[in-house]
Design a protein around this nucleic acid. Structure first.
Lengths: 140, 140
DNA sequence: TCCTTTAATGAAAATGGTTATCATTCTCTA
DNA sequence: TAGAGAATGATAACCATTTTCATTAAAGGA
């Protein structure tokens, strides 16, 4: 399905569907969670040593533009991507010790964010919220 | 006042209060808003051309550790610092067009964040929340 | 199918913010 | 005021990401 999405996005703007892009998309879909372009490059390289690092970076940006992936930044200087699930947005909690992460969503918070934005004269477009804490494992 | 704080932080751990550190601290205090180390370097350099870039980066990290400044990252790869006001934490709304930013705080959201963390077995340490939107000026 | 246009690729260099190195200089304390 | 150890400044190194550029390959039409 995301493959079709990509094909459509590409043909709509006269871009090209290359084998590399298919490979990278599939690796991304297979991986599941949050991946950086570099991690994905390492994965893809094993099956396909000829692929270039820049191509993976470019492809991930493309997937984000196409609405298939969304970029997540935790503030450590690395861009990670996750599958964009249209229906439900979520935020993240990260353990400061083991970096384990959990996703959550809270409609009440979402609602309050819209109101805060309005209160200051903004129309809310998007937001980023990351909670940093210590998980139960690391506390024991 | 922050000067005293710095002096104390330094002497407590046998670090040294240098003229450079005073200059950088003052420039930071004068500036007010969010500043990156590089911006601060440009400012400081005018009055004091001898000062090194690395010294400014080091000093800002120090101010953050000393609890005088706090680091803010908007996700564009640049670390900015703002004066840490002990009493009240705040979050940011940024205009995607003109990059104007407004600070706000919402105790209800803060509260819900703690609960979400608990719900997932985390003890909340800190958080980052940035709202992206379009401000009233840019809409008209 | 072949051709042409134009985008994509891979390798390598460049970028840009930030940090490390290291010889020299300066603070602080005894 | 001397000595120990930290700080400085210049510069090189880092590291994720982007750009450059010559080469290759899609896509669409003839």
């Amino acid at each position: 399905m995301p493959g079709d999405l990509l094909a459509r996005y590409l043909s709509d703007r006269k871009l090209k569907l290359t084998p590399q892009r298919k490979i990278i998309l599939n690796a991304f879909l297979d991986h599941g969670g949050h991946v950086s372009s570099e991690e994905l490059y390492d994965i893809v390289k094993e099956q396909n040593p000829g692929i270039g690092q820049a191509t993976v970076y470019r492809a991930m940006k493309l997937l984000a533009e196409a609405g298939i992936a969304s970029e997540v930044r935790f503030g450590d200087g690395i861009s990670r991507y996750e599958l964009k699930d249209e229906q439900e947005h979520h935020d993240h909690i990260i353990c400061e010790k083991c970096f384990r992460q959990v996703e959550f969503s809270d409609p009440t918070i979402e609602d309050l964010q819209v109101r805060q934005a309005e209160k200051h004269g903004f129309v809310l477009v998007s937001h980023r919220m990351i909670l940093y804490g210590i998980c139960s494992k690391c506390r024991s």
